[in-house]
Every structure is written in structure tokens, then in C-alpha cells.
Nucleic acid binder design. Structure first.
Lengths: 191, 191
DNA sequence: CCTTATCTGTCTATCGATAGATAGATTACG
DNA sequence: CGTAATCTATCTATCGATAGACAGATAAGG
């Protein structure tokens, strides 16, 4: 008897894998551990994801897709740039609040040299997607600025938020994240 | 014939280990690889650093000590807060310029859950040391602000710079770091 | 309807590589 | 001689990956 469909199993593996990566990084991903968590054997995980690189790339791609969908929804129902940025910073905050996790692509950036090429590609796309969205939000506030300046500002915001998450995580202190975000706002880095 | 003294050997191991961690993280540290790089056997590395945690903690402690010494020197010969911050951001930039390396404690923060307790302790100290120094520099510009506000601002700067380094590294593009720092300056986050 | 063939998903068992760590022999310095 | 440093050799554990078998579902041909 097959308890789950192929799609269900893939989803279960990806869910478990994502949690592991956000907590302990790509290197900590193990086919055996993953298999145990979802109740199958490691060989069966290989059936769904032939190589570890395939799994990592699928994770990052999904992560970007889900993020993009959520952000698009935010912008569509927007109550203004400040509200958007509140929601945005809240995303990264909730990762920390949820067992001190990190942005999946942020933690993968730190492991860059151990990533297969197909995973790196997806990590790049995540950053580009975020910067693209932030640029749109910024354009609502500074309609006069050039596209290039907006993009530069957006990248700075993205980097600053990733950094706040990284440092707060390292210190196991979510208050550090909150205070950093507050300072970013005070200085006007974040609108 | 003993080619090097015990101290020399410890230094050689730590130098090689530091380069590896800054490039590929704590998890990528291997006693065998390390031994090969310095020309001894892995068992001999264990002689100098009984466990991997010992080595990691020693690395982070040294990293903090050297950083503190350099920063103290900066402040002593200071030509003003802006000059100090220029030198400070240059430290993190040079890591990227040097084979896309990262701050040792930044990369370790990402691997937090895989770190032995003694290593985590040292990672915390590095952040505290940096924030302490930045607080002093900030106090040169905003003598009116409270110690608490200064410290909060300092932490935000530290986090933003770590983030710029992380994202620039992830994208293998040092220009991202430079532009982020410029934006931090434009907004006044960095004096 | 029935049988034969194919496909799907998982299993067991195992591979070679590598990890950190240790015991005990050996070498070299003072 | 004694001790400091390195060696050889090995252990256990885990890694990603693969081969081959098997059960159950599905599809095709008669």
C-alpha cells in the first residue's frame, strides 16, 4: 500500500530539508537523516532527488518562488511603502523567532564554496528577486531617483536585513534584530 | 630533525585553519586536510588541538584578539570618526577581495547549530568587541546621545556591514559590498 | 475479463571516501 | 635519560551514491 503519492513524498522531503538547512545549513543536510524524518530510506530520497545538488537547488528555487508570491501579494494589497517594509522585515524576524532559523539563501551564501553550481545559481536568483521587489517599493517613495540609485538602495536594505538576522542569530538574541531594524529606520535606510 | 618549534607549528596550523574557515566555514575544517597543508599528519594536529572545538575556539579567540589590537591602534592614531569608519569597512572589504573570504565569526554565526559551546562563546565575544569599538567611534560624533543609543547604533552598523559582506560574497561580486557601504553612508547609518 | 508487460516507489545491502579521535611506537632535543 | 613532538596504524561513524530485488498499481492486447 502506498501511503502517499509521489508529489506528497517530494513535498515531505523538501519540507524537512528546508527546516534543516535554515537551522544548520546545506552541509548539514543528510540523506539518511532526512529519510528518517519522513519515514523512508535514504535510497528512496535519492529516487526523488538524484543528487544532493538537485535537492539543494529545488529547495532554493521553491524558497524563491514562495517568497516572490508572498511579496507580490503584499505589493498588490499594499497600504504604502512603510507598511510593505514592516511586513518585509517581519518575514526575516519570524525565521529567527521560529527556532533561531535563518533565511535559506542567506545561510547558503555563507557556505558558498561548498555549493554545487546549480545551487549557487538559485541563491543568486533569490537575492535578485528580493532586490527587484524592494526596488519597486522604494520607487513608491522616491519617484525622482534613478532606477540605478533605487536598485542600489534596495540592495543595501536587503544586505542590512540579512546581516541583522545573521548577527542576531549568532548571538541567539532576537532583540538584536529588532534594534538593528529600528536603527535602519531611524537613519532612513529603510523607509 | 625538528623543523619548527611547537609554537611555530601551532601558528602554522592556525593560519591554515583560519583561511579554510573564512573560505568554507567551520564544518569544512578537516584535520587531515589541515595536516597535509602544513606538512604533518592529522594525529599531530590533534596533539596541538585535542579536539576540533579546541581549534575552532582558539581560532575565534585569536581572530578577536588581533581585530581588537588593530582597532585599538586605529582609534589611537585616529584622524576622526569618518576616517575610522573608512578603515573599518576596509577590513571587511579586504576579506572579500582576498579570495572571496568572509569574516570568520560571521561565517561561524551561520553555522551556529553545528558549533561546540566553546566556539559559540568566542563568536559572541567577537561581536561584543566590534560593537564596543564602534560605540567608542560613534561617541566621537554624537556626544549627546545616551550610551544605550550609541550601542544600538553600533550594533546596527556591525550587522549591516556583516550583511553586505555576506550578500556580496553570495553573489561573488565585491561591487555589491562597495555600493551597500556607500548607501549606508548616504543615509547616515555609517558616519 | 484475464493475462502479460511496464511503471512506480521503496526496500536491503553495499560501495568508496572521509570524518574526528585514539593508542602506542618512534624520533629528536636538551 | 627524559620529555616533547611526530609518527603509523587503526577505530567507529557517517557521508553521498548505486545496484538489484520486490510489491503494488496501471495499462495493453487478446
Amino acid at each position: 500500500m502506498m501511503a502517499r503519492t509521489k508529489t506528497d513524498m517530494r513535498e515531505a522531503v523538501m519540507t524537512a530539508a528546508r527546516a534543516t538547512v535554515q537551522s544548520r545549513g546545506y552541509n548539514a543536510l543528510s540523506f539518511r537523516e532526512l529519510a528518517k524524518e519522513v519515514g523512508i530510506k535514504s535510497a528512496s530520497v535519492h529516487y526523488h532527488f538524484p543528487t544532493k545538488g538537485d535537492l539543494g537547488a529545488a529547495l532554493a528555487r521553491r524558497y524563491t518562488e514562495e517568497g516572490a508570491a508572498y511579496l507580490a501579494e503584499l505589493l498588490a494589497t499594499s497600504e504604502g511603502p512603510t507598511w510593505c517594509m514592516d511586513r518585509y522585515t517581519e518575514i526575516f524576524r519570524s525565521a529567527l523567532a521560529n527556532d533561531n532559523r535563518m533565511c535559506l539563501c542567506g545561510i547558503m551564501s555563507a557556505e558558498l564554496d561548498d555549493l554545487p553550481a546549480e545551487v549557487r545559481t538559485e541563491v543568486d536568483k533569490f537575492a535578485a528577486m528580493n532586490v527587484g521587489w524592494l526596488t519597486k517599493v522604494l520607487s513608491l517613495t522616491k519617484s525622482s531617483a534613478s532606477e540605478q540609485d533605487l536598485k542600489e538602495h534596495a540592495m543595501a536594505i536587503f544586505a542590512a536585513i540579512e546581516g541583522a538576522q545573521l548577527v542576531a542569530r549568532g548571538c541567539r538574541n532576537i532583540g538584536i534584530y529588532d534594534r538593528a531594524i529600528r536603527a535602519y529606520r531611524t537613519t532612513g535606510l529603510i523607509p
